[in-house]
Amino acid sequence: MDEKAAQAPAGAPGSVPPAIVVMGVAGCGKSAVGIALAAALGVTFIEGDRLHPPENVARMASGEPLTDQLREGWLDAIGERIAAPVGQGEGVVAACSALKRSYRARLSGFCPQIVFLYLEIDPATARRRVGNRKGHFMPASLVDSQFAILELPAADERALTLDATRPVGEVVATAVRQMRRS
Rank of each mutant, 00 (worst) to 15 (best):
M1F: 15
D2N: 15
A5Y: 13
P9F: 03
P9A: 07
G11H: 11
G11R: 05
P13L: 13
V16N: 12
P17D: 05
P18F: 15
I20F: 07
V22C: 08
G24V: 00
G24C: 03
C28K: 15
G29L: 13
G29Q: 10
K30V: 09
S31T: 12
V33W: 06
A36C: 09
A36P: 02
A36K: 06
L37F: 02
A38T: 06
A39L: 10
G42V: 02
G42W: 14
V43W: 11
T44V: 15
E47N: 14
E47W: 08
E47M: 12
R50S: 01
L51R: 09
H52N: 05
H52Q: 05
H52L: 04
P54D: 00
P54V: 00
N56R: 02
V57S: 02
R59N: 00
S62M: 02
G63D: 02
P65D: 06
P65R: 01
D68Q: 04
Q69V: 03
Q69Y: 08
R71I: 01
G73A: 12
L75H: 14
G79P: 13
G79F: 10
G79T: 14
E80H: 12
A83V: 05
Q88C: 07
Q88S: 08
G89I: 09
V92W: 10
S97Q: 03
A98I: 06
L99Y: 09
Y103T: 03
R104Q: 04
L107M: 12
S108E: 02
F110N: 12
P112R: 05
I114T: 00
L119N: 01
E120F: 08
I121V: 15
D122K: 15
R127H: 00
R129P: 02
R133T: 05
K134E: 08
F137V: 04
A140Y: 01
L142R: 04
L142D: 05
D144S: 08
S145P: 08
S145V: 06
F147H: 13
L152G: 10
D156S: 00
T161Q: 09
L162P: 07
L162K: 15
R166Y: 03
A173Q: 14
T174G: 03
S182C: 07
S182D: 13
